[in-house]
């Protein structure tokens, strides 16, 4: 029982980390295009779209890489959970305002509707919560 729990914990960690490393890398490779997609959400003053597009991919990359590397798991899972919660709120606002946009979650060519993105973010949030909550049970004790 404990063994399958540990296995699923590590699967959650690797899946969550892998998804965010991928999402961050794709967006970091083409920041101007991602800035255009952030602008499409119509939430920020123009220049701030570039600030978000420049920083968010690297935050995702770093947190995802920590999960893959089995380091700082709780803070990384917490950060990705909070980010996902934020994405969900933003996507709900897109639906509420009836904007027809591409979510931009995985770079310019992914072509995901806000509703699909919302479903995916709920799953990712669940993964982040699972990693956060299971960490103390399955992770090796932290060093000094």
């Amino acid at each position: 029982m404990k063994r399958s729990g540990r296995l699923s914990y590590h699967l959650c960690r690797l899946l969550l980390g892998g998804v965010f490393v991928w999402a961050g890398a794709v967006k970091a490779l083409d920041v101007p295009a991602f800035a255009g997609q952030v602008a499409a959400y119509r939430l920020l003053p123009y220049a701030w779209n570039y600030a978000v597009a420049s920083t968010l991919p690297y935050v995702e990359l770093l947190a995802g890489a920590l999960l893959l590397a089995n380091q700082r798991l709780k803070p990384a899972a917490l950060l990705l959970g909070v980010l996902n919660g934020l994405f969900i709120v933003v996507l709900l606002s897109v639906l509420a305002r009836g904007l027809q946009i591409d979510c931009g979650c995985f770079g310019p060519d992914a072509g995901t509707t806000p509703l699909q993105a919302l479903g995916r973010d709920v799953v990712l949030l669940a993964l982040a919560v699972a990693v956060y909550r299971q960490h103390d049970r399955y992770a090796p004790p932290a060093g000094p």
Binding site: Y46, Y50, V59, A63, P75
Partner: peptide
């Protein structure tokens, strides 16, 4: 944990700004 999460976010954002400082500055 919260402090570490904030530090990870800050580090990621700093790297992003360092890599893209010209783009952000221009914007």
């Amino acid at each position: 944990t919260l402090l570490d999460a904030i530090l990870i976010a800050a580090l990621g954002a700093t790297i992003g700004l360092a890599v893209n400082h010209r783009l952000v500055g221009d914007a």
